[in-house]
């Protein structure tokens, strides 16, 4: 194939004296990483905190997720737990494993399973959800859960961040759960189950990797769920002072 690029070849032959230095190069096909879907991963603890309630309850709480995948498909592990420090027991412990695909410019659909393994009875649910960014910058995560026994519930989380400065950030969160059927064993009544609202003031200390915060959290149970809690001798409303950090890596 010495005919390839003879102009170049001639000048080279003349100059460098390499007889067949210039040869045809195949028009190779791109098999480099650039031509592959970009695979990425991340771990975020939206909440990693100590809570102290108005009736002296102490909790260690986290709410985190880890993902691995491409633009088109991600596997996401979501984990959240409330550990009662005095009783050394998990008040809640939920782990979800979902697959996630984009369904619109700003939203993804999720499907997977959720395992609840707190102190007390365990539950396994199928999960179907959407998560994304709603207009006016509300981060929204809405999920539908159906337990093995057919009990279903829905949960919506929303978060909004207010930037006092580019480092001092006030984030407001609202989680609400609604049950479509009663699951008395785990204290869930039909209807609006509970809400958790939080306000956290954070400071981005190391990039967005470590942002310590202080805040307040309000938890409340409603309707039948509140009645069930009262029957158990528990409270239906808690105020917490929280201190913790947002972590991402």
């Amino acid at each position: 194939m010495s005919c390839i690029r003879s102009i170049v070849a001639v000048s080279f032959l003349a100059s460098i004296g390499v007889s067949t230095a210039v040869t045809a190069q195949e028009m190779i096909s791109d098999t480099t990483a650039r031509k592959q879907p970009l695979t990425t991963w991340g771990v975020q603890f939206e909440e990693f905190e100590y809570r102290y309630s108005d009736d002296d309850e102490e909790l260690g709480v986290w709410n985190a997720d880890a993902f691995y995948g491409t633009d088109d498909f991600k596997v996401r592990l979501l984990t959240t737990g409330e550990y009662e420090i005095e009783e050394q027991a998990y008040e809640t412990l939920e782990n979800q494993l979902v697959g996630q695909i984009p369904i619109s410019k700003f939203f993804d659909a999720k499907a997977g399973v959720r395992f609840d393994t707190p102190e007390g009875p365990d539950r396994t649910y199928a999960v179907l959800g959407v998560a994304g960014l709603a207009p006016q910058w509300f981060e929204v995560d809405a999920n539908l859960y159906v337990s093995k026994d057919g009990d279903s519930s829905a949960e919506i989380d929303a978060e909004y961040e207010l930037l006092f400065t580019n480092y001092w950030i006030l984030s407001a969160t609202l989680d609400a759960t609604v049950a479509f059927s009663e699951d008395e064993e785990i204290g869930v009544g039909k209807g609006l189950v509970s809400t958790e609202t939080g306000l956290r003031l954070s400071y981005d200390l190391i990039d967005r990797a470590f942002s310590p915060y202080v805040g307040v959290v309000h938890e409340r149970k409603y309707g039948d769920t509140a009645d069930l809690a009262k029957a158990e001798g528990g409270g239906t409303e808690d105020w917490f002072a929280v201190i913790g950090a947002r972590i991402a890596f």
């Binding site: 194939m1 010495s2 005919c3 390839i4 067949t20 230095a21 210039v22 040869t23 045809a24 190069q25 195949e26 028009m27």
Partner: peptide
């Protein structure tokens, strides 16, 4: 020359 054919004759 067909550039999808590789030069196998040295070089």
């Amino acid at each position: 020359a067909k550039t999808d054919v590789i030069a196998k004759d040295g070089g």
